[in-house]
Design a binder for these strands. Sequence first.
DNA 1: GTCTATATTTTGATAGAC
DNA 2: GTCTATCAAAATATAGAC
Lengths: 207, 207
Amino acid sequence: MTETATGVRKRRGPRGEYAKSSATREAILDAALEVFASGYNSGSLRDIANRVGMSEAGLLHHFKSKSILLQAVLDLRDERSRDLVDFDDEDAVEPLRGLVALARHNSSVPGVVELYCTLSAESTAPEHPAHAYFQRRYVSVRESLTGTFERLIADGRLLPGISPERAAIATIALMDGLQVQWLLDRDVVDMGDALKEFFDGLIVGGI
Amino acid sequence: MTETATGVRKRRGPRGEYAKSSATREAILDAALEVFASGYNSGSLRDIANRVGMSEAGLLHHFKSKSILLQAVLDLRDERSRDLVDFDDEDAVEPLRGLVALARHNSSVPGVVELYCTLSAESTAPEHPAHAYFQRRYVSVRESLTGTFERLIADGRLLPGISPERAAIATIALMDGLQVQWLLDRDVVDMGDALKEFFDGLIVGGI
DNA sequence: GTCTATATTTTGATAGAC
DNA sequence: GTCTATCAAAATATAGAC
């Protein structure tokens, strides 16, 4: 069996035996992203199935339940966005530039921003199907970013008196909060500019 | 008729003719706050009615629909939290201290934090019943806070090169984002400390 | 003001034919 | 792999008795 934890059957190749199934799964995942962007609870399988042009039963053949589908959407996003920011670059300022680039990139994919914004808030409820996912995710990002700020201290680039972990927490908080305001009114804030200004106030000589 | 826009009948007095009705309404609003804290869409009138100990029909006698009940919850929270921060104090640093105090106070009422966190994210969707409410709210808070930073500039207290509106946007974003991380793991961050550290890096001599 | 009863929709999920 | 048919549960809301 070639099944992952969330039931994702691996594609055999461009003309492999699972090719059609794989294409359908991708279409479902794309539609699910759009629908779940308004929230997991308010989005329905019917809506997703309609967008793909198939029945609910057909959809459930690929993803056995609604919550499994959500997991798959999040896993796919992780896969696609990994390595957009390189926390291991020799220049410790580079990850910060990467985050600014990520913020700018996000401005071109409002659906993805809405998905993470809505789900991260929704999932603060312990019974939410993405609760554990977001807990893990925040721990992981916080660790990586804390490491970056530790190296910046070693390089004498971080303003004195700032704890690396608190800088990481504040950076993540700023990015998250900017998304809410941006989604409510996209003209009010440029997420990339705002984040860069924050870093420039934190790093000796700016980023 | 003494009805407000959201159908809130005003109490006539401690022994007024609407006394019982008013007490029931408050009980409903308290329960609704708890239930809507997990999201408007995922919360049900049945759940709220059960917590109050009455039927759904009885509940709907006081609030004609689910969305009207949500509006009433938000209106009540506004009423109770107004004047916690005085943006008109003669000392322009005082509002910032007020926001730190607010952040510390919020740590004692996780339900309220969860309500705003979840609903503000959910309501970025244009069809959400609280969409207009949160758009207005963010515009209003941003304006007040921008004014505070303008006065801090006039007083020579804001670090040079920082735009008042951007400082306001970043402050609000930071507060919102801290809430998400705090709700996911309350041990990871002290919202008051984090906000104060941010202000100390922004204001000459600290707050 | 509160209840029971009910209408109406919508939902996630299953069974089984093709 | 996809469909039709169907189920069972849950939701919001209304009507009308008390």
